[in-house]
Amino acid sequence: MAPSHAFRCCKRALNWTPVLFINLVIGWSYYAYVVELCVYTDSICCVFSTVSYLVVFHLFFAMFIWSYWKTIWSKPAKPSVAFALPSAEKELYEREQRAEVQQEILKKVARSLPVYTRTAGGAVRYCDFCQVIKPDRCHHCSTCEMCVLKMDHHCPWVNNCVGFSNYKFFVLFLTYAALYCAVICATVMQYFIKFWTKQLHDSHAKFHILFLFFVAALFFISVVSLLGYHLWLVGKNRTTIEAFRAPVFPNGPDKNGFSLGFRRNVVEVFGDQAKYWICPIFSSQGDGHSFVTRLVHIDPEQANTVLQQNGKMLVSFFFPTMLK
């Protein structure tokens, strides 16, 4: 037990290495821009441009850091106790060796839950590790060792699962990271050219500025590519997992099964109040357990009643009365 526990502790510590690396890069970029560029270099040329650069830079820097750490520290949402097998059915399930009989037990319990997706073979999705019937769009993360509601992927750069509880924060993190890099590239380019053409005297700031431009440009290209992909996913109302493996409904797999139209897809992630869209404040629609689909109409009253029977009140979900 001791070696296993020590191994898990070491693994968890190592998982923070990418986060540490990103924070070191961010810290260095802040020093290079504010101190080496704005204090040692730009203050010699123009005080007004220095102040302008600092104001814009700190605005995007603050939003970038805020959304990044919200993505890191937002605990992944897991299924409620309503999706656990009742004690009698759980005992029967664990005692039974035949897979087909186990499936009958799961199907009986799943009838009272707002669960409509199945495995590729048509079986009820059940997690043997967490011992819960998986809600729609829920998947087990081996790194986090838990089932995550509306799981998108596990991101090593934030050392956290990206899912229902923090997907909005993740998209904003990518957005502000791209804008942060764009501001650096746009304002540093003139000094990059001047240093390169020897129009400014050599100083210890030269190498910081040259390297800052290259790093910001490289990160900008990488982040924009990833941001474009996730904005496409938001518009289609898909997760990364669903983009590669279509969810299976009673009448077959359908990648667009959860798509309700572009506007309503965006609202599901960012909320129905546009003033909160740019802020890393949770405003996503729903509770992460049940979703409206194009193929199945979920009764919100029935879903909430089932989920509240176990004593856990959940946030009421936005269900349209008619699906087009």
Rank of each mutant, 00 (worst) to 15 (best):
P18R: 05
A178L: 10
H139I: 04
F291M: 03
F207K: 13
S43G: 07
W16K: 12
P250T: 04
F48A: 15
A178T: 05
S52K: 10
A123F: 04
C9D: 15
D136G: 08
T50N: 08
H204I: 14
L149A: 03
T117D: 08
A62W: 06
G235L: 00
H289A: 00
M63N: 09
K312T: 11
F207Y: 15
K198I: 13
T187P: 03
I184E: 00
F195D: 07
G261D: 07
E268A: 14
P280C: 01
K324S: 09
V19E: 10
M63P: 10
E242N: 08
H58R: 03
S29F: 02
F173E: 03
L260Y: 10
G271Q: 00
L210P: 14
K11A: 15
C181N: 08
D272Y: 07
M63S: 02
N251I: 11
E100I: 06
L59T: 11
K255S: 12
V109L: 00
R111P: 10
P253W: 02
F60S: 09
L172E: 07
G235E: 07
V132M: 02
Y30T: 12
E145Q: 15
F60Y: 01
F291K: 04
Y167R: 11
F213P: 04
P114E: 11
A274L: 05
F270R: 01
L37Y: 06
C147A: 11
C9Q: 15
G261K: 01
A84R: 14
F211E: 13
K11S: 15
F170T: 01
C45T: 12
T175I: 05
H139L: 02
E301I: 13
F164V: 03
